[in-house]
Design a protein around this nucleic acid. Structure first.
Length: 601
RNA sequence: GCGCCCGUAGCUCAAUUGGAUAGAGCAUCGGCCUUCGAAGCCGAGGGUUGCAGGUUCGAGUCCUGCCGGGCGCGCCA
C-alpha cells in the first residue's frame, strides 16, 4: 500500500520534471526507480489522512517555489487510483492521502489468503547476511546479559529472513587461549579435591558449582587416572608473600597451569580441557535451545589457530607494513586507521592475543563472501570496534576484494534486573550473577524474550522481574498473548452455539465492517508489513514489540465494544474474518520475537 | 583526563530516523462484569524534551559549549 503510493508520487514527479514544471535535481534523482526515496509516512493525526508526504517541502528550495504551489501541481497530476478516497494539501505543504476503507478491508483478504507469509517480502533479494551473536566464552553458564544479546540477535535474524535475506547465524566459540586453560585448571583442581588431595583453590579460578559437576564427571568416569599430588618436586608453585597481590595471583595462576600441563602431559591436559569445554558448550547450547535461540554454525576459534589462519593474517599485516615489534611484543598499527592506540597481536610470551584471532575470524567471514556481516556485541566491547575495523581495512585496503569487509557492529546494552523494586546486584567477578537459565525458570522464556526486545537494544534495560512474572494486564506479554487467545476462544465457542464461520463467504461481506473500532483495527493491521520491514532494516526489533502491543490494544477495544457471535451470518463472518486476520498477525509477529501464541491461557 | 553512548510525564520507555498539536504502559483519580475470557474496556489529570546558543520552511532528533549519568581506555577475553 505504501509502496503503491510512493510509485504514484514518483510517476507524478517524473511527469512534472519532463514537462519542465520542476527542475531535475541532478544527483538526487539518479535513482529515479527507487521509490523508497520518496518520503511517505503514516500520519500520527487521523485528521491528516492515512499517509502524508513532505516531499514538496523538500523540493521547494531547489525549485525556488512555494511548497504549497508545488503540492497543488503534484495533486493535479496525480494519476487516478481506486485506493485513494481524497487528497488534501495541508499545513506548510504536506500532501495528505485519505485511503478508502475498502482498501483496508482488502488487507483481510490478503492475510487470510497467505496467513503465514503476510508481511514477508523479498526486499533482501536473497542477499547473504552473516550475523554473529551471544558468543559468550564457554567458561561458565550464560547469564542475563548474554540473554539480551541472544534475544536481540535471534529476533533480528528472524526479521531479516522474513524480508528475504539469506541469514547465517553464528556463535563464535572462544575455545582457545588462557581463559580456557584456567577453566581446565579449575576443573582439574576440583577433581583433585574429590580424589582426596588437599589443594588450595585460587581465587582467580572459576568458582562456580558447575566446575564441581564437571570434576565429578571426570572422577566418576575415569577414577583417579588424572590424580597427582601437588608437590614442589612436581613443580607445584608455592605460595609466597608478594607486594602486588593482584599481579601475583595472575602469575600464580599461570604457574599452576604450567604445572598442570607438565604433570598431566599435553594429552592429559587436553583431555580435561576438552571435557570442560564440551560440558559447557552442551550446557550453553541446551540453554539457548530452551530459549528458542539456535545457530547454523558454532565457529571455533581454535580452528583458526590450528589451520594457521591466525598466522596467515598476521603475516599479511606484516607484509603490508602494519606490524612492528616493541618491548618484545608485536603491535598492529591500528592508529593508521583511526584507532586511539596501537594494539598488541602477539604478546612477549609468543602467544597471540584474542584480538589476533578475531582478525582472523573476520577475515574468514569476509572470505565466505557474505553481502553483509553483522556483529552483535555487548556494549562493554565498544572499544573493540575501531581496532577490528582498522584491521579489516589494513587487510583489504588494496581494493582487491570488492565485498564489504567491514562488519556492522550492533551494541547491546546491559540489562539491570529489578525485584521488588530493588536492583538485583550482580558481579561476574565473584560469580554472583543471575544465569539465563534462572531467568527462564523464574519468568518463563516467553516473557524473557519479549522483555529483552521491548526496548531499543542500544539503551539500558530495566528488567522488572515481578512484572514479567505477573499474569495481569500490566504485563505486555500476557496482554498480547491474551488477544490471540481471545480469538481462539471465539472460534471455540462457535460450535457450542451451533454457529459457524464461513471463511470464503466472509470475504464478500467485508463491507459490513464499518464501526470505528473495526476501521482502526484494519488500519493497524495494514501497517504490519511496513513495521516488519522497518524493524528489520533498522535492526530494531523493538518496533515490532511496540506494534504488537498496539495491535492487541485495538483488538481488545474492538472485542469489548462489539459482539462477534451474532446471528446475522454475514456480519458474523466479516467480524470473525477480521479477528482471524488479527490472530495471524499476532502469531506471526510474536514468532519473530520468539514468543509463543497460546490458544488458551 | 581522553573516547563512545545516554538525558523526553512521578516511574519505565516510544516518537515513522529532520516533519504538522511530543505519544504509550505503569502509578494516581473516576466509571464498566447475571451477556463471546474483567489476564479486558472507557474517561481524566500529568511536559519549557537536562541547560544555553546555532543550523532551516521546520529540531526531542543535526552542530557547539556547559551540567548530570553509564561504559570503555590491559602484552584479559
Amino acid at each position: 500500500m505504501k509502496k503503491y503510493l510512493q510509485n504514484l508520487l514518483q510517476q507524478t514527479l517524473s511527469t512534472l520534471r519532463e514537462n519542465g514544471e520542476l527542475p531535475s535535481p541532478g544527483h538526487l534523482s539518479e535513482h529515479s526507480g527507487d521509490t523508497s526515496q520518496i518520503p511517505l509516512e503514516r500520519t500520527r493525526n487521523p485528521d491528516h489522512g492515512d499517509f502524508a508526504t513532505p516531499v514538496c517541502l523538500t523540493l521547494a528550495k531547489t525549485a525556488r517555489r512555494k511548497p504549497r504551489e508545488i503540492a497543488e501541481q503534484v495533486v493535479a497530476n496525480l494519476p487516478a487510483s481506486n485506493l485513494i478516497e481524497r487528497v488534501e494539501i495541508a499545513g506548510p505543504g504536506f500532501i495528505n492521502f485519505h485511503i478508502r476503507d475498502d482498501a483496508f478491508r482488502d488487507q483481510i483478504r490478503q492475510i487470510l489468503a497467505a496467513p503465514d507469509s503476510y508481511g514477508n517480502s523479498g526486499i533482501g533479494a536473497g542477499q547473504r547476511v552473516q550475523i554473529e551473536y551471544v558468543s559468550a566464552n564457554p567458561t561458565g553458564p550464560l547469564h542475563v546479559g548474554h540473554g539480551r544479546g541472544a534475544a536481540y540477535g535471534a529476533a533480528l535474524a528472524a526479521l531479516l529472513t522474513a524480508i528475504g535475506f539469506n541469514v547465517h547465524r553464528e556463535y563464535y566459540v572462544n575455545d582457545a587461549g588462557r581463559q580456557m586453560d584456567i577453566l581446565a585448571l579449575s576443573v582439574w583442581l576440583r577433581y583433585l579435591d574429590l580424589c582426596g588431595e588437599t589443594v588450595s583453590f585460587p581465587a582467580k579460578a572459576y568458582q562456580g558449582d558447575y566446575i564441581w559437576d564437571i570434576a565429578a564427571t571426570l572422577n566418576r568416569e575415569h577414577g583417579e587416572k588424572y590424580r597427582a599430588a601437588p608437590t614442589q618436586e612436581a613443580g607445584f608453585p608455592t605460595v609466597s608473600e608478594d607486594k602486588d597481590p593482584a599481579a601475583y595471583s595472575e602469575k600464580y595462576l599461570d604457574a599452576l597451569i604450567a604445572w598442570a600441563k607438565n604433570v598431566l602431559g599435553e594429552s592429559g591436559f587436553d583431555f580435561v580441557h576438552g571435557l570442560g569445554l564440551g560440558a559447557l558448550l552442551d550446557d550453553i547450547r541446551g540453554d539457548l535451545e530452551q530459549f528458542g535461540v539456535v545457530f547454523e554454525e558454532w565457529f571455533s576459534e581454535r580452528s583458526l589457530v590450528d589451520s594457521g589462519a591466525v598466522e596467515d593474517v598476521l603475516a599479511r599485516l606484516r607484509n603490508n607494513g602494519y606490524l612492528y615489534e616493541k618491548d618484545g611484543a608485536w603491535w598492529f598499527r591500528s592508529t593508521d586507521f583511526g584507532d586511539e592506540k596501537d594494539r598488541v597481536v602477539i604478546r612477549d610470551n609468543g602467544l597471540a592475543t584474542y584480538f589476533a584471532s578475531d582478525i582472523a575470524y573476520h577475515a574468514n567471514k569476509k572470505a565466505r563472501n557474505f553481502d553483509r556481516i553483522i556483529d552483535i556485541w555487548g556494549a562493554d566491547h565498544h572499544g573493540y570496534i575501531a581496532r577490528v575495523k582498522a584491521a579489516m581495512e589494513a587487510l583489504y585496503q588494496d581494493g582487491s576484494d570488492k565485498g564489504p569487509s567491514n562488519p556492522i557492529v550492533l551494541l547491546v546494552q546491559f540489562a539491570n534486573l529489578y525485584r521488588g523494586g530493588e536492583l538485583v546486584q550482580m558481579s561476574t567477578r565473584s560469580g554472583d550473577f543471575v544465569t539465563l537459565r534462572e531467568l527462564r525458570k523464574d519468568v518463563g522464556a516467553d516473557a524473557a524474550r519479549f522483555f529483552y526486545v521491548m526496548r531499543r537494544s542500544d539503551q539500558h534495560l530495566d528488567f522488572d522481574l515481578d512484572l514479567a512474572k505477573s499474569r495481569t494486564a500490566d504485563n505486555p506479554v500476557y496482554y498480547v498473548q491474551y488477544a490471540h487467545a481471545r480469538v481462539c476462544s471465539l472460534m471455540e465457542k462457535l460450535d457450542g452455539r451451533a454457529l459457524d464461520w464461513d471463511a470464503t463467504a466472509s470475504l464478500s461481506g467485508l463491507d459490513r465492517l464499518i464501526e470505528s473500532q473495526e476501521l482502526k483495527l484494519l488500519r493497524t493491521l495494514s501497517r504490519y508489513p511496513e513495521v516488519v520491514e522497518s524493524a528489520a532494516l533498522a535492526y530494531e526489533p523493538h518496533q515490532l514489540a511496540f506494534f504488537l502491543r498496539e495491535l492487541a490494544t485495538d483488538f481488545h477495544a474492538y472485542y469489548n465494544a462489539y459482539t462477534f457471535l451474532v446471528d446475522d451470518a454475514t456480519l458474523r463472518n466479516a467480524r470473525l474474518a477480521l479477528a482471524m486476520a488479527t490472530r495471524h498477525v499476532l502469531k506471526n509477529g510474536l514468532a519473530f520475537l520468539g514468543v509463543s501464541a497460546p490458544e488458551s491461557m
